[in-house]
């Protein structure tokens, strides 16, 4: 009996994921309006449940894709994978006026440069403080503090050790998960309630997954603006990390 159910769930894994995510959304919105009386946004709760499930999935299945490593939950990985995620993010731009983006163009570029530089500097200083003194390790961990893609790309380019590359991925994951969970909490404090601030936020934070989920949990309408700038961040980080920033760090240490 259980075997039969599992066979079906695994065979229709994307359908299983749709049913499961719908259930999580329903429970989250019911709890947000009931137990939390609207003080917590339903989407924030749903994302939090997702992250907790990912931790449990990682612990049970021992992979690196959260619940998606459990065979009958593989569809969650497809639904939440790059293809559907990017399709949904692009769709949020439908109906947005181009003028909104043009208006904040300069601020967006300033935010992107500041975000990449500050993350590299802070990550690099952290690496130095924890005893990493070679420029390869410093720039790689600095890249990890940017995003979990910039770290390994930079590390591979400058020839960092695999232990340091793994560390940079972990740093990027910590950042991504913090951005997902903290954005709705800090939004009122940093004035994150308009498209202008969301564009800057996306440029400064950079982690597409973190920004996408963080803004979804804050106010869904901010998502296209944050996602727009965040999408340029990883490319900029991969561009600057192994080149300009690596050379600068070599001069410094």
């Amino acid at each position: 009996m259980l075997d039969a159910v599992e066979t079906v769930l695994a065979k229709y894994s994307l359908v299983t994921a749709l049913a499961l995510v719908a259930a999580v959304m329903w429970i989250s919105y019911a709890a947000a309006n009931g137990v939390f009386r609207g003080r917590v946004h339903g989407s924030a709760l749903a994302i939090l449940i997702g992250l907790i499930a990912a931790y449990a999935g990682g612990a049970v299945a021992g992979g690196n894709a959260g619940v998606a490593d459990v065979p009958w939950l593989a569809g969650v990985g497809v639904l939440g994978g790059a293809a559907f995620r990017d399709l949904a993010i692009v769709a949020t731009a439908f109906g947005v006026r181009l003028e909104e983006f043009r208006r904040t163009g300069v601020a967006g570029i300033v935010a992107l440069l500041a975000g990449v530089l500050v993350s590299f500097i802070i990550g690099g200083v952290t690496a130095y403080a924890f005893g990493y003194r070679d420029p390869q390790s410093i720039v790689t961990i600095g890249g990890g503090a940017a995003t979990y893609i910039v770290g390994p790309v930079t590390g591979a380019a400058v020839g960092a050790s695999s232990e340091v590359i793994a560390l940079s991925v972990a740093a990027g994951l910590v950042k991504s998960i913090l951005v997902m969970t903290l954005t709705p909490v800090v939004a009122p404090w940093i004035g994150l309630d308009n498209p202008h601030a969301a564009l800057i936020y996306g440029g400064l934070m950079g982690t597409t997954s973190g920004v996408a989920a963080g803004l979804a949990a804050t106010d869904e309408r901010l998502a296209p603006y944050g996602a727009m700038t965040a999408t340029f961040y990883t490319g900029l980080g991969c561009l600057l990390g192994p080149s300009v920033l690596y050379m600068a760090i070599r001069v410094l240490v």
């Binding site: 994921a17 995510v21 719908a22 999580v24 959304m25 989407s43 749903a46 994302i47 449940i49 997702g50 992250l51 907790i52 499930a53 990912a54 931790y55 999935g57 990682g58 612990a59 690196n64 894709a65 959260g66 619940v67 998606a68 969650v76 990985g77 639904l79 939440g80 994978g81 559907f84 995620r85 949904a88 993010i89 769709a91 949020t92 991925v169 972990a170 994951l173 910590v174 991504s176 998960i177 997902m180 997954s209 996408a212 989920a213 979804a216 869904e220 998502a223």
Partner: peptide
Amino acid sequence: YIPVVVAMAASQNVQAA
């Protein structure tokens, strides 16, 4: 968009973080 993001959150490597 939000359900897709929830699925994305559920397939992150939270344990490594």
